[in-house]
Design a protein around this nucleic acid. Sequence first.
DNA 1: AGGAAGTACCTTGCGCCGCAAGGGTTTTAT
DNA 2: ATAAAACCCTTGCGGCGCAAGGTACTTCCT
Lengths: 134, 134
Amino acid sequence: MTKQLAAAHDQRRSQLLRGVLDLCLLALIGERPRYGYEFVEALTESGLDLVSEGSIYPLLARMERAGLVDSYRAPSAAGGAPRKYYRLTDAGAAELAAGRATWSTFTTAVSKTLREEQGEQVGRDERDGRDEDE
Amino acid sequence: MTKQLAAAHDQRRSQLLRGVLDLCLLALIGERPRYGYEFVEALTESGLDLVSEGSIYPLLARMERAGLVDSYRAPSAAGGAPRKYYRLTDAGAAELAAGRATWSTFTTAVSKTLREEQGEQVGRDERDGRDEDE
DNA sequence: AGGAAGTACCTTGCGCCGCAAGGGTTTTAT
DNA sequence: ATAAAACCCTTGCGGCGCAAGGTACTTCCT
């Protein structure tokens, strides 16, 4: 039961990530070069939990293929396999800027729609004459 | 070219709608009973353009199947086929409340990530010793 | 030496859902 | 009669987050 609610919550989160996850990665890469495994840890503890490796590696590959980022390898300082760092390209920076604007506009519109307006109440008593169906 | 950028923009919008479109409909239905065609018009002019019939009718059907809304038929006042009005159920109201909270938390986290921080700059000159690859 | 655990990379298959495209019915206007 | 608007609906495609599973290197414990 509690598990079902949690599942529903996570399910929504997954859907919400669509269309912004790439922007989040671009923004983080914009601050400084980053490697894939870093995102998994960083995003997990910084509000956006979930976001497993299965999400970000394919996404990074897609973004590189699209020319939004490029990469170079460097040995890990913490032991383990060599890291693959990503940097923003000019196209990536442009996409990030455009995406920020889209995101801002979008969330404003949605938040406005979602906000419960306490003005304009419809009288509860006036409803009648409807025929149930189905 | 301009067309491609517009396409990219709309593509992102489509993705962004996932996970919130249902909440928007629930919120609008919460204000007063609404019918499907109404959403297409309302959302088109209220910031969220696109959102065609192919998005909302299946969604309404899913929500009704999930018990979040119920419906009744009433003749159209504007000529045309009879309208199918939707109302919130208790479960729908609960889902809306939960969704609003999820949305709020989510956008806060994302906006924070997306915000360009002007503090903490990495010196551009210190970067060296990396070996290009691929 | 052997092995578990941590760091790091990657791929495959499933499932959800927005959307374009297409089709149906009823009413009003020409 | 024909058109157009106001309504309803379904099908198929495609993108992408995610669970699950796999590889390679390093460090530490026994």
